[in-house]
Design a protein around this nucleic acid. Sequence first.
DNA 1: CGTTACTTGGGAAGCGTTTTCCATTGAAAG
DNA 2: CTTTCAATGGAAAACGCTTCCCAAGTAACG
Lengths: 349, 349
Amino acid sequence: MDTAPEKTAATLSDVAREAGVSLATASRSLNGSDRKVNESYRRRVLEAAERLGYIPNLFAQAVAKGSTMTVALLVADIADPYFSQIASGVINAAEEASLVTTIAVTGRNPQRELATVRELRGQRPRVMILAGSRSSDSEYEQQLLGELSAFEENGGHVAFISQNQPAFTTVQLENQAGAKALAEALVPLGYKKFAVITGPGNIRTGSERLRGFTEGLATHGVELDEESIIHASFTRDGGYEGAKELVRNGLDSVDLVFAVNDVMAVGAMSAIREAGFDPGVDIGVAGYDDIPTVRDVTPPLTTVRVPLEEVGRRALQLSFGSESVQQLATAAPVETKVVLRDSTPSRVR
Amino acid sequence: MDTAPEKTAATLSDVAREAGVSLATASRSLNGSDRKVNESYRRRVLEAAERLGYIPNLFAQAVAKGSTMTVALLVADIADPYFSQIASGVINAAEEASLVTTIAVTGRNPQRELATVRELRGQRPRVMILAGSRSSDSEYEQQLLGELSAFEENGGHVAFISQNQPAFTTVQLENQAGAKALAEALVPLGYKKFAVITGPGNIRTGSERLRGFTEGLATHGVELDEESIIHASFTRDGGYEGAKELVRNGLDSVDLVFAVNDVMAVGAMSAIREAGFDPGVDIGVAGYDDIPTVRDVTPPLTTVRVPLEEVGRRALQLSFGSESVQQLATAAPVETKVVLRDSTPSRVR
DNA sequence: CGTTACTTGGGAAGCGTTTTCCATTGAAAG
DNA sequence: CTTTCAATGGAAAACGCTTCCCAAGTAACG
């Protein structure tokens, strides 16, 4: 049995001893301290560290300093492109600030989300970023908000993405305005009879987009009746099933289906196609988010672009900014923009 | 200015004092200790903790115990579905074992990868999982391997995904065998003239898949000439550009293009379509990985399924397993399977 | 009952750092 | 020459926890 030697990693005391200096001096030479240390000492320490392959223990540092290098990110599902893009932005921004990102997933389960937040607090992260799809289930919501307030009172920062969460820093995603703009861009193309596939009632992002869309239609005097709104799970399969239901209800009268996010829209398109309709020809389809893949489905999907990477980045920066910067940026929402593609060709003449 | 009170979080001593017991007893009642503590004491501690909103400081625990609760995951690009699915598996498995996952991205840059590994060591994670696309650039590779060995010598675990990295635990992805099987499934469908879009020469996953594919063709007496192999970046845009190049070189003689991963294949399909060809009709297209979106592109993409979530999960489990379990599982690669879809219809008769 | 053997609380050491505080030195100032 | 002060090294306290070790209490046993 080739049992490994398993000598534990070199510690700072090892380095100090090796260099023949005190612990204090070693610490000061290695980690950015304001205290000056004689160049010759510093060199000796650095060399000793090199020789021993010393790597400072981040956790011990955190304990000693009373502040950590971590930012915690909560997402519903990291495999969903929406979240993985946000994560990408957060991670990159964090690395630039030499912070470490830890990710936890909630699976859109409020109960689990609450539990996760609680556990995450144990990490004493500098920032906790909660991304999207917060449910509006009030029982848990209260507790969640309470937990987060406590976290902030102990010196942590919280940033929400997408929710308008008055008590905390938020990267506003303008779901309602974006969806409204989409509707207003669609009507002039000649679409008359709309259907919407949205998420479960308790998912805010979905409701907001639905509301905005309805509003946009109303502006043009188009009404969206109850039967054309169908609720499904917030995933690709949800979109697929939603469209199936739409088909069952008789798709013929419908002009255009708006799925409240791109993955749902993509699923819907597949279902529509399977039902023998030709998306983009027989019926328009639109999504929301502009995730990368929608350029590559056929036909390319009309959607509302939201710069997800940028959003993640911004969430991190915001949570560090001074009060005023936060106010400002919270006030100035991220730029969303309607992107018309072939899935919604013009129908006029 | 509504300056927050900013009382720092309750500590274990606070709890002990509040409950009127010693630190030791408090610790033992709260965190799973083997030592039994009198029920009445335990209750008092628990109540005190509740009252104070005490949450144990994970880092302090880690320092005290000399072992951490983190697993570090290194990916090239978290926004790439390939990696985000793996990440999903890792995170879920980690949470089940109540471990915290930290993610770092390397952007496929060997230099950055090396630096990241070095920094990650500072976290003293229980496990470090390096996912895919390791380059075979020997200069950095040596240093990387050295860094990892040092990490293991200090008691850490390392798991590779996809690479056959003899010195470390590895989740084998059978790239070569999978691609070979794909080729062997494709030839009988009547395809004769193949082209391959692969990654930069130094990305192993790409080379292995290319090699397997070539091998599979050879089995059936089909040869793949140098000009039909084009190198591009390992991303969607790489696939797109690669296909464009293929088109420029004259696509007419080509029957089927195999892109070594799905995102590339999807990009390639778009380029092919833009060039006026009809993928799946004029020309077959195949990818690799079976990421979720390929079901929803048109036509649905033929590919090789690799259960990415499962792979991530397994990577984590493996790195904890006993020696023998590791050997076994390292030996038993994860199951890959050719999935024929409409992008490669049969051409015979 | 007297011994021995468990239990179980608490004091204190220890984990790997940072940082406070003191002590020493040497130079500038009078 | 003293006196004062800015520099800079080191001893030790501190961070928030776990755990070793001891002592006191209780149970078991002959």
